[in-house]
């Protein structure tokens, strides 16, 4: 009995070297080695980052030429845009006096700034393209048909929010292209019913000035990404709930 209360170096070392890591590993990974059907399934749906993926898919789903992975590429671009955009925010101030200079600094004075800015820029152009191509694929494979019709509606909202993200990002460099694009874009809004009111609330005033810049900035870095992230979650969840990727009848 006396012996047990005594400090045993070997026992303590083996405890920290073997038992603690195993306990830690077991607290995170809660399934056995994936050599059985059950553990293979558990591997996917006990992992937060993998659980949106189906445990099993139909054969045609993994063929690249069925979907060209347009939705997946769109998601990848959205993630790239979120990361690069977040980094650009460290150097960009949404002020009419500083914005253009900050943008130029990113291009000429900040290490890898031009790389990040161009990744953000081309990623944005790419995302608009892949969203449209994804929509075409869904249309041509008839994937909008029941039970997937509601997911098409969510997809349309995601298309619109992608376009709004593009439009709001357009103003941020505060150069001539940006200024006139938003002047024209906001006036297009004024042709809609209650258009002058829409233009006023979009620009936060009557002119494309500081009020408009901060509104477009907040929409670009907060409101629209929030809505888009939420809807992407619902969109992917619905794909799973509607029986995975569409395909020929079983």
């Amino acid at each position: 009995m006396e012996n047990k209360n005594k400090f045993d170096l070997r026992e303590t070392l083996s405890y920290f070297a073997f038992e603690v890591p195993v306990k830690l590993y077991r607290s995170i990974i809660r399934h056995g080695y994936p050599d059985s059907e059950k553990n293979k399934s558990l591997l996917i749906f006990t992992n937060f980052f993998l659980h949106i993926l189906p445990v099993k898919v139909r054969k045609h789903t993994v063929k690249v030429r069925y979907s060209y992975c347009m939705g997946g590429i769109t998601l990848l671009l959205f993630i790239i845009l979120t990361i690069t955009g977040g980094l650009l925010m460290f150097y960009y101030v949404p002020s009419t006096e500083k914005a253009y200079q900050n943008m130029k600094d990113l291009e000429f004075a900040v290490s890898f700034g031009v790389f990040l800015r161009n990744m953000h820029r081309w990623g944005a152009h790419g995302m608009v393209a892949t969203v449209f191509l994804h929509m075409c694929r869904v249309f041509y494979t008839g994937a909008y048909k029941p039970p997937r019709e509601f997911n098409w509606v969510i997809g349309v909202i995601l298309l619109v929010s992608t376009l709004f993200l593009s439009f709001t990002g357009y103003l941020l460099p505060w150069d001539q292209l940006a200024f006139w694009a938003i002047t024209v874009g906001a006036t297009i809004a004024s042709y809609a019913p209650m258009g002058d009111l829409q233009r006023f609330v979009l620009l936060g005033g009557n002119t494309v000035d500081q009020g408009a810049l901060i509104r477009f900035y907040v929409a670009h870095v907060f409101l629209l990404p929030l809505v888009t992230t939420l809807l992407i979650g619902v969109h992917l969840w619905r794909v799973r709930k509607d029986g995975g990727m569409s395909g020929p009848p079983l």
Partner: peptide, 10 residues
């Protein structure tokens, strides 16, 4: 809230 009451426009 989104409709400003005071504008600092020229």
């Amino acid at each position: 809230f989104m409709f400003p009451n005071v504008l600092y426009e020229p």
